[in-house]
Simulated scan of single mutants.
Amino acid sequence: MEYKHPFVTSFGRVEHKDFYIIEVIDEDGVSGFGETEAFTTPWYTEETTETNRHVIEKLLVPLLVATPIAHPEEITERFQKIRRNNMAKAAVESAVWDLFAKKKKQPLYQMIGGTKQVIDVGVSIGLQTSTHQLLKVIEAKLSDGYKRVKLKIKPGNDVELVREVRRAFPTIDLMVDANSAYKLSDLKILQQLDQFSLQMIEQPLANDDFVEHASLQKQLQTPICLDESIHTYSDVKTAVALGSCQIINVKMSRVGGIKHVKEIEKYATEHNITLWCGGMLEAGVGRAHSLAVASLGQFTLPGDTAASDNYWHRDIIAPAVHVKNGQVHIPNKPGIGYEVDREALEYFSIEKIVLNN
């Protein structure tokens, strides 16, 4: 699917998304849907769209259908023998959760313990061709009602960029995302960001370095948020123990599925760590699952679950995800709450794989 506007980060430019929709069908013909959220190259995590396909087709589906399951939470233990590959696991597990919720005639967000049907949302804005263009985009997004703006930054495109945004929009909730573009030796640059009253600096340093993030947090007034660093429940405990961050961006696909999200949310509640739900530039099925996750109680900051039309000319769900006054109302229907638009799915599909038990 082609994006309406290319999305540019410190890692590069993303113009389209190749992904798999996972449809799980039970003996009664009821379907549940999941979505792979990896990219075509391993710039975000080590996974890619094609490694997702291989792991799902050759390893996860055989494990899933080996014996019946009574509850989606059983899948986590069944998949433990496969290391990492969290996005592949999450795509399958989330499809089964959707199916299970439909069988129980209950909205998914309620089934997983969510308490909010109305979700506050922000918007993530990629690097633009000029500061003038960035300010125009921000103004348009604020006019659409988004409650928080996230800017992508990188070395050489940071302090002065944020200064201009703050000058134009002195009171908006503002955060920046570095996607691991900085080193601890860039401390003086990052400290200059303290003057702009940011909600957070997301993932400033290397994705695998909790120790340096802890050192940086001690020397910054602005809260650090970890994103790419958090793949497991154990990662969360490490970050909290070391003081590597004050906020965590939780993405269901990155941590391996809904069961792991629930474990992380419980731990974060007990340790007063703020959570919010990030986005993966996903299509409608993945976005619907993210909204369900964002309904959990400790997810207290606006998520990156922006409207479908922020990304796509046409989404693959009906209705599309709409934002009104900076909020998304999750449909009170069984499962993810949205129907897959079969016609749109067929239009965008380039291949279909059927696996039978």
Rank of each mutant, 00 (worst) to 15 (best):
K262R: 15
C225L: 04
D194A: 02
P302G: 06
A306K: 04
L242I: 06
V211P: 00
E282H: 06
K262I: 15
S197E: 14
H260K: 14
S295M: 04
S185F: 06
T274P: 00
H213R: 05
D309V: 04
V211E: 14
E212N: 15
M280Y: 02
D186S: 06
A292K: 01
S290F: 03
P204W: 09
K266P: 00
I230P: 03
G256E: 11
N207H: 14
A239N: 07
K266I: 05
S290N: 15
P204R: 02
G297M: 05
V240Y: 13
F196R: 01
D309K: 11
I247M: 04
Y267T: 08
E212W: 07
G284H: 06
M200V: 10
E212Q: 15
A283L: 14
L291Q: 07
V250G: 05
R287L: 15
T222R: 01
Q246H: 13
K188Y: 12
I189L: 15
F210Q: 07
E212I: 00
K251I: 09
L193R: 04
H213L: 02
L187N: 07
P204I: 14
Q298F: 00
C225N: 10
A294D: 10
M200P: 03
V240E: 06
D304N: 03
D235M: 09
I248S: 10
Q219P: 00
T238L: 11
A241V: 05
L190K: 04
A268Y: 03
H213V: 08
I247Y: 09
S244W: 08
V285K: 00
E282L: 04
I264F: 08
A178I: 06
K183L: 14
G284A: 11
H213I: 03
N272R: 13
A181D: 03
G278C: 12
F299S: 03
K183C: 10
K237N: 08
Q217S: 12
I224N: 04
H271R: 14
V261L: 06
C245T: 13
G279F: 10
E212M: 11
I264S: 00
G286S: 04
T269D: 09
N249G: 10
Q221M: 11
E228N: 04
A288P: 02
P204A: 10
A268W: 04
L216N: 05
L281C: 07
Q298H: 14
L187S: 09
S229L: 05
L275M: 11
Y233D: 09
L220I: 12
C245P: 04
S234C: 00
N249V: 06
G297L: 05
G278N: 12
